Amino acid sequence: MNYRINALLTLTAALSIAYECQAANEIALKGRYEFRTDTQSQDSLGGLVCFYPGSDSAKILPRSPTDKRLAWFCFKNKDESKKLLNIPEQIKGKNCGISGQAALKVANYVSYNGEGDGVDTVVLVAVTEKSAPRKLACKE
C-alpha cells in the first residue's frame, strides 16, 4: 500500500513540475494568424497555421539578438491550432486561405537555425481573443 502512495505522490510531483515549466515557458502575444491553402504554401508549410506577431510582441520572442529575420512562426500542433482559431476544414470560394487578428499564448518556441528554408515553431496553448477571419486572395 505504501508503494502505491509513494508512486502516486511521485507522479503528482512530476506532473506539477511539468505544468510549472510549461506555464513558465508560455508567452502572450498579439498579431495576425494565417492559414494558406494555395499549393506552394501547403507544400512549404505542410498545412500549418502561422502567426505574425505585432511589433511589441515580436520584441519578446526568445530569439537571438543577431537574428534579423522577420519575426513569424508556425504552430506545431496543427489540428489543435486550427480548432482554437476556428479554421474550417474546407475554405470555399475563390480564395487561398484565411487570416485574422488574435491574442494568444504559446509555449516551446524553437528558432530555426538551419540552412536554407525553415520556419520557427511553437505550440499554441490558448487563444484569448480573435477577430472574425477574412479570406485571403490568391497570389498571381
Rank of each mutant, 00 (worst) to 15 (best):
R63H: 03
R36M: 04
D56I: 08
T12Y: 12
D56W: 06
A23S: 11
C21V: 12
L8W: 02
L29N: 02
C50M: 15
T39Y: 02
A24T: 01
G46F: 08
L29P: 01
A7I: 04
E34L: 14
C21P: 10
R32I: 12
L61I: 10
A7L: 11
S55Q: 10
L15Y: 13
K59A: 15
Q42G: 02
T37L: 04
F35V: 03
S64P: 04
P53H: 14
T66A: 11
Q22H: 11
E20R: 13
R36T: 01
D43Q: 09
D43Y: 00
L8S: 08
K59C: 11
L9H: 09
E26Q: 15
I27L: 12
A58M: 11
I17H: 06
T12H: 14
T12D: 12
T37E: 03
S57G: 05
S57I: 08
D67F: 00
L29Y: 05
I27E: 05
K30I: 02
A18K: 09
G46V: 04
I27R: 03
L45M: 14
K68N: 06
P53C: 10
V49E: 13
C50T: 08
T39Q: 00
A24Q: 01
L61Y: 07
S16F: 12
D56C: 08
P62C: 10
Y33H: 06
S55T: 04
I17A: 13
T37Q: 01
Y19K: 02
P62T: 09
C21F: 13
L9Q: 12
A23R: 14
I17Q: 13
A13Q: 09
